[in-house]
Design a protein around this nucleic acid. Sequence first.
DNA 1: TCTACATTAAGACTATTTCTTAAACCATCT
DNA 2: AGATGGTTTAAGAAATAGTCTTAATGTAGA
Lengths: 194, 194
Amino acid sequence: MSAIQNLVSHFDRYLSLDDVESKALTSRLTERKIKRKQYILQEADICKYFTYVVEGCFKMYGVDKSGTEHNLLFAAEDDWISDLDSLHKERPSKLFIEAIEPSTILQISKGDLWYLYTNHPKFNRIFRVITEDKYIELQNRLLQTYSTAASERYESFLEQYPNLANRLPNTQIASYLGITPEFLSKIRNERSGK
Amino acid sequence: MSAIQNLVSHFDRYLSLDDVESKALTSRLTERKIKRKQYILQEADICKYFTYVVEGCFKMYGVDKSGTEHNLLFAAEDDWISDLDSLHKERPSKLFIEAIEPSTILQISKGDLWYLYTNHPKFNRIFRVITEDKYIELQNRLLQTYSTAASERYESFLEQYPNLANRLPNTQIASYLGITPEFLSKIRNERSGK
DNA sequence: TCTACATTAAGACTATTTCTTAAACCATCT
DNA sequence: AGATGGTTTAAGAAATAGTCTTAATGTAGA
């Protein structure tokens, strides 16, 4: 299956696209290969694209004043990633988006996305649902962050992203959980002891 | 201005509604008066409505296993509030939504909202943008939570919600920041010392 | 006006997590 | 295939941000 067919069938899961819509979409997508450790967004840049991950894996993170990275989220195959704040408000991003694995992506520019929204209303519905789902993810993550200890958040992470848990280095998971890799190792140790 | 006119002009800020759309919307809204400390959603219930706050103020929070409340967000005049997770996935909510002040709200049920999405596509676009804005808020909150200390998060809260800061009791702000009211008092004390 | 709750204060406390060092391990790049 | 650089585990010492407790005072709602 080609990268673009991949995305069209992704959309079909929400609402099926007719030929006109499908063509309007695919003609506006750019396919890119991204190397490991390559950025598709850097702090202070303005985010220009909404990115669909065909293959590989990305992390989006911020860096605090002491230089520590904090992973906000990961995106692997069949997922979307973008700094919506920077993309929509056209302000400099506070975040980095970096490939953790060699990856293939499809990107649509802000202008092209706006074109779709205006001329093919169905995309509003599809992206409304996508954004709602992302919102729900963040809300649950925030609730967890405030109401449970690191060890429990690790358990939830394992349940929610069993495939990512295998693929990601523990340093990255620790950054996502808001702890040091050493402490994650301690948690894993206690956990396996049980 | 009536409560409903209020909401129609809220929508007009995104995309103006024609008469048909405006009527389709208003005929599906229910106006309610809510007393202080009254719930519009309780844990374990399934969230049935998307709620627009005409007047007053609400908090949405979860309760951890030790019984402590954690405020996820507030919604005052001209804002939306709902547990999207429970509303969309039709699963029992983990959250409470409670009035902090006597309030007036407009509610639309899930079924009616779906009717609008299907029959009046413009609402998809409006709610897509509303959801995106909410997503951006959460993303920034999450980044702050992981990358800054409580005192800095308090400063940001004051900047971002200057009107809420005056209206809300500090206990509620402390719960939002993830600290005890005593510690917030300490932060305020040090802050005013400067 | 009364009552319950909110705020401030201040000191003792501590749980969670970091820091440090080190050794072993593993993966990927040339 | 070997070298190199990052990853994982370990374990004890150390730090500190935030809690707990008590108490006195202030404030807003009924």
